[in-house]
C-alpha cells in the first residue's frame, strides 16, 4: 500500500482562528514549505473549520482576516486545502471560504500522506 501515499506533507489545523497563534504558525509553516516547492497540503478539522467561515472581519478585533490570508495559499503553491465534512457540518460552515475539498478525515485519509503534522 505504500505506493498509495504521496510525498505531500499534511498540516492539520484544528484550533479556532484568532484565539491564539497556533493556527497562524501552522499556516506560516505551510507557506514556508511551499516557498521551497515542498509539496504541502492543509486539513481543517474540528474547531479549525472556523477558519473557513465566510463573512469574517478581523478588523473588528484589530487583526487580519484569516480566511483572506488563507486565500493566498494556492497562489503560493500549497497544493490542496481539505476540510473534514463532519466538522464543517458541526459548525455550520456550508460554503467554505476559500474553497476546500471536503473529505472524511478518518484514518484512511491520513494514510494517504507520508507525513502528517498537527501543530
Amino acid at each position: 500500500m505504500s505506493d498509495a501515499t504521496t510525498k505531500t506533507l499534511l498540516i492539520v489545523i484544528d484550533s479556532p482562528p484568532y484565539g491564539d497563534w497556533r493556527g497562524r504558525e501552522a499556516l506560516d509553516m505551510a507557506f514556508s514549505l511551499a516557498a521551497f516547492d515542498q509539496p504541502v497540503a492543509l486539513l481543517f478539522r474540528g474547531e479549525g473549520v472556523n477558519w473557513l467561515r465566510p463573512g469574517q472581519d478581523g478588523a473588528s478585533i484589530n487583526q487580519k482576516t484569516v480566511s483572506r490570508n488563507l486565500g493566498a495559499a494556492r497562489m503560493f503553491g500549497v497544493s490542496e486545502l481539505f476540510a473534514d465534512t463532519a466538522s464543517l457540518a458541526r459548525f455550520g460552515v456550508e460554503r467554505p471560504q476559500p474553497e476546500v475539498e471536503p473529505v472524511v478525515a478518518d484514518a484512511a485519509f491520513y494514510t494517504r500522506f507520508q507525513e502528517v503534522i498537527q501543530p
Binding site: P17, P54, G55, S60, I61, Q63, T65, A89
Partner: peptide, 20 residues
C-alpha cells in the same frame, strides 16, 4: 450544533463579527 447553551447566554459582538 453539538452544544446546548444556557438560556441566559450573551456574546461579545466584535468577537462574533471577526469570526463571521
Amino acid at each position: 450544533a453539538t452544544l446546548a447553551l444556557p438560556a441566559n447566554t450573551r456574546a461579545l459582538r466584535h468577537d462574533c463579527l471577526a469570526r463571521g
